[in-house]
């Protein structure tokens, strides 16, 4: 086994362990901190794949911006195990069924992996900024532009919701 394989497997173990701890921690702040670790281990996988741009964007966007906001809100609310509302049994059964269905569909996805046609020697430079940018602005330009419109509408929506609250207070 080469160095990168050992690294990939150990990062995989770290991501799965921390992802499970996100769910099992009693304290929401601990959950968020474990989620940050999960994102970091995923970012590590991108480094092994030489996808440098994806690596740094993962860190800036998820670990840097979104998780700071999460932590910010949770620290302000100061939730703990005692204040968490208890859910009734019907709700629990529904969530178990929904989660189980998601799990089955993920296993179904795994089934097809053996038949996939992967190139024998993938282009290791594809994750660099220049190549990625050229792909985004030529082959994938329409999905790229559409997703930016989606982001823009999300931002406008956030401003609208925030504004309505301010009027209610006045």
């Amino acid at each position: 086994m080469g160095l990168s394989e050992i690294l990939a497997y150990s990062l995989g173990v770290v991501s799965i362990t921390t992802a499970l701890l996100v769910v099992f921690s009693k304290n929401p702040i601990h959950s968020v901190l474990y989620l940050i670790l999960t994102f970091f281990s995923i970012a590590g996988q991108y480094v092994i794949l030489n996808a440098q741009f994806l690596f740094i964007v993962q860190i800036i966007v998820y670990s840097g911006a979104i998780m700071v906001l999460f932590l910010f809100v949770l620290m302000l609310l100061n939730l703990s195990g005692d204040t968490e509302p208890q859910k009734d049994n019907v709700f629990k059964i529904i969530s178990v069924v929904a989660g189980g269905l998601l799990f089955i569909s993920m296993i179904a996805m795994l089934k097809g992996i053996g038949n996939m046609n992967l190139p024998a020697s993938p282009d290791s430079q594809i994750g660099l900024v220049k190549n990625l940018g050229q792909l985004l602005f030529s082959k994938y330009v329409i999905p790229f532009e559409l997703s930016s419109v989606l982001f823009l509408s999300g931002m406008v929506g956030a401003v609208m919701i925030g504004k309505k609250d301010a009027e209610d207070i006045n």
Partner: peptide, 25 residues
């Protein structure tokens, strides 16, 4: 000499807040 040099700086500067946030909380 990584391809994303300046973004790397940017990413780790934004990480800096975690020490303060975790310590404060």
């Amino acid at each position: 000499d990584i391809d994303v040099g300046i973004l790397y700086v940017f990413g780790f500067v934004s990480m800096g807040v975690y020490g303060i946030m975790i310590g404060g909380w």
